[in-house]
Design a protein around this nucleic acid. Structure first.
Lengths: 191, 191
DNA sequence: GGCAGACGATAACATTTGTTATTATTTTTT
DNA sequence: AAAAAATAATAACAAATGTTATCGTCTGCC
């Protein structure tokens, strides 16, 4: 599972083995809730197989804010880092194979890792990338029509369109399920 | 100008003086363009007095994505860090007093600062905060109506409503200028 | 094999939002 | 002080999007 990271990270084999020992493998069915709303997040997950969505309840409707697939890590970051009650729910979409690590273990590892300049810079880069992603996403809301946002999604994150039920995608794009269905049928007509 | 930071940063006086010497003070009138679209950003600005917006041209209309006020730092981050042509324009709204530092000088300082654990952690925290901010902003687009977003703005960033011309705020909220005007008049009626 | 629930398409209607044009007011420039 | 430019409100109409309801299909489960 972790081989994909191994080549990229400048760690000794001993360190590597020590770190990976902190991870725990679990298998869960579809629609498993990994973190409840209001719960304080204690685990960060890495997806070996499957997919996950992050959502929250807004006046009885659930709004999906993020999707995650293989090899991505997932947590309610604000809750995980700052020990706040999580504003969001983390839930599997497909049946999944996951690895999780506790906050304490991860923090210990992070503290060690930050001392290695190369790793530290990589962490900064990752954080920057995350920030850019959110920025782009926000910009697309003031720049693009819902139809354009859907086309962007097909192009840039085809996995979402292929693997995620449509009504989850609708709220992610900021439109109703009915309207997303309309968007799709109009696109088919034009072809 | 930099006294506000001084107490918070664990640096020696010598280091402090060395660092602040890299900053240059300028005064510019309103509507001064600090970075053109397509230009590679070489300066990061700190605002002593005044305010700034970041915007880009989309099919002839300019869309504002960010506002900055006193004591905030401003750059087209992606362009500044990665030497990409800037996708955005940086422009003063009011006449302003600014301090700028070159990329090379800032990078040197950052490399030094990252070696101080306390400073390094502070940098991580700042980056995290930025990420959270964008996340919140994105969520408000799928969660809130334009009216609600405007009310949020009044509450959370009153400076924007007070100091920024309304047509810039409209695009920031993702609505037309006409509609923002309608939103305001409806809110007045309800009171 | 049948049943229940999840999922998605569609129609009809209501509401929101955008567009274009006009006007008034304020601010800046000359 | 006058002229020009920027800003904001409003009306009338067009287009986009939401809501509610209905129906059909598919899937997993017993």
């Amino acid at each position: 599972m972790f081989n994909q990271f191994r080549n990229k990270l400048p760690l000794t084999d001993e360190k590597w083995i020590e770190y990976t020992n902190h991870f725990n493998r679990i298998e869960v069915p579809a629609k498993t809730i990994l973190l409840e709303e209001g719960e304080i997040s204690k685990k960060l997950f890495i997806i070996e197989k499957g997919c996950i969505r992050v959502w929250f309840n807004n006046n009885g409707k659930d709004l999906t804010t993020q999707f995650f697939f293989e090899n991505q890590s997932v947590a309610s970051i604000e809750s995980f880092m700052k020990k706040f009650p999580s504003p969001v729910v983390i839930e599997t979409i497909e049946s999944s194979v996951l690895w999780w690590i506790s906050r304490d273990d991860l923090n210990k590892i992070l503290e060690e890792i930050k001392e290695i300049p190369e790793m530290r810079d990589r962490l900064f880069d990752m954080l920057f990338e995350r920030t850019f992603d959110y920025m782009k996403h926000f910009v697309s809301f003031i720049k693009d029509s819902p139809t354009q946002r859907y086309l962007n999604l097909i192009k840039e994150r085809p996995q979402i369109v292929q693997r995620v039920p449509q009504h989850y995608i609708a709220s992610y794009l900021g439109v109703s399920t009915v309207h997303l269905s309309r968007i799709k049928s109009k696109l088919v007509q034009k072809k």
